[in-house]
């Protein structure tokens, strides 16, 4: 009986061990995926900055900061994304003023890239499933809805 219990206990312990190892594996896999996607965000930021041109404006300053935040190697992906979200919030607020003053030829491309950047970010946040991140992402989309409505006026 005792041997049987020991066997059961060891099986259960084994199961827990496998399970936690499995969880660790899933988490590190997710982190690897997110890291690749953060690189895509950086690429999109580069593309936007290229469109905005060499002349620095408030939006390109913010985007440069956003890029910097994503490149901090010591930070975890969650921390990077939390900081990125805050910078993006400011970018969203200043975007309409910068957008209105731009050349009509680049407006459309910029609009697509900027929306793409936000959509990419939201998709990553959804994948992470972190409550604090989801919270900041919701705040960001509320700002997007408000500012983009002003843009259409």
């Amino acid at each position: 009986m005792s041997a049987e219990r020991n066997h059961k206990d060891s099986s259960f312990a084994g199961f827990l061990n496998d399970y936690s190892r499995g969880n660790v594996a899933v988490t590190s896999h997710l982190n690897a995926i997110v890291s690749v996607e953060l690189l895509k965000l950086i690429e999109t930021i580069d593309e936007i900055m290229r469109i905005l041109g060499p002349e620095a404006n408030k939006l390109s300053e913010q985007l440069a900061l956003a890029k910097e935040v994503l490149q901090v190697t010591e930070d975890s992906n969650v921390t990077k994304l939390l900081s990125f979200s805050r910078v993006l919030e400011i970018s969203v607020v200043i975007y309409p003023a910068v957008y209105k003053g731009l050349d009509p030829d680049i407006k459309n491309t910029l609009s697509h890239l900027f929306t793409g950047l936000i959509v990419e970010f939201i998709t990553i946040v959804k994948k992470m499933g972190n409550s604090a991140l989801l919270e900041t992402a919701i705040r960001l989309i509320q700002k997007v809805d408000k500012e983009m409505a002003n843009l259409e006026k």
């Binding site: 929306t115 936000i118 959509v119 939201i122 998709t123 946040v125 959804k126 499933g129 409550s131 989801l134 919270e135 992402a137 919701i138 989309i141 997007v144």
Partner: peptide, 21 residues
């Protein structure tokens, strides 16, 4: 759950953007 609610708000946003596109 609260998490699912939040994810659902983001889903709606993503869907709206996809439709606009």
């Amino acid at each position: 759950t609260e998490l699912e609610d939040k994810q659902s708000i983001l889903d709606t946003f993503l869907l709206k953007k996809a439709e606009e596109l």
